[in-house]
């Protein structure tokens, strides 16, 4: 067991874990931040996307120890108190979710996308979402929500 420390959503945290602990399990089981989901567990579906040092990554394929010392942001760190992040607001407004399982990952990917590409067109949004699967919505309203968010950000 090793003590792994990092900053998560602005707070300094640490936990005693095995080297094989994945970042997603560190977040969910050690920090009880269960907003980040485990979907496929094979780095395909994107339900586990969080930001590590400002970049969106699949936390099911990153060791907690690789993120030691890093700045991590999860879905729980997006809203400002009761005020939702504009991307969260847009997903709500445009019905960008049905069951909600993929939503944390979708939103974290979308926030990263809009940081790099402030005004993406629809083709770009769809290309950028290639690492996130939604099995309910057909993506239509997710794309619409991200487009809408890009206009207010």
């Amino acid at each position: 067991m090793t003590v792994v420390a990092m900053q998560v959503n602005g707070k300094q945290v640490s936990a005693d874990v095995e080297p094989r602990t994945l970042l997603v399990h560190y977040l969910r089981e050690n920090l009880q931040l269960t907003g980040t989901h485990v979907g496929c567990d094979t780095s395909q579906c994107g339900a586990c996307v969080v930001h590590v040092d400002g970049k969106a990554v699949k936390s099911c394929t990153v060791l907690a120890m690789q993120a030691a010392g890093a700045l991590v942001r999860t879905i729980e760190g997006l809203a400002d108190g009761d005020k939702l992040h504009p991307v969260q607001e847009a997903f709500k407004e445009h019905h960008g979710l049905q069951c909600g399982f993929c939503t944390p990952g979708m939103i974290m990917t979308a926030v990263d996308m809009l940081r790099r590409i402030p005004k993406p067109d629809e083709t770009t949004i769809r290309h950028e979402l290639e690492g996130n699967f939604c099995r309910c919505t057909g993506y239509h309203n997710i794309v619409k929500a991200i487009k809408a968010a890009s206009e207010v950000l």
Binding site: S43, G46, K55, A56, V57, M113, E128, G131, N132
Partner: peptide, 9 residues
């Protein structure tokens, strides 16, 4: 290669 999340790592 892969997707944006994979390309970040």
């Amino acid at each position: 290669i892969g997707d944006p999340l994979v390309r970040h790592r």
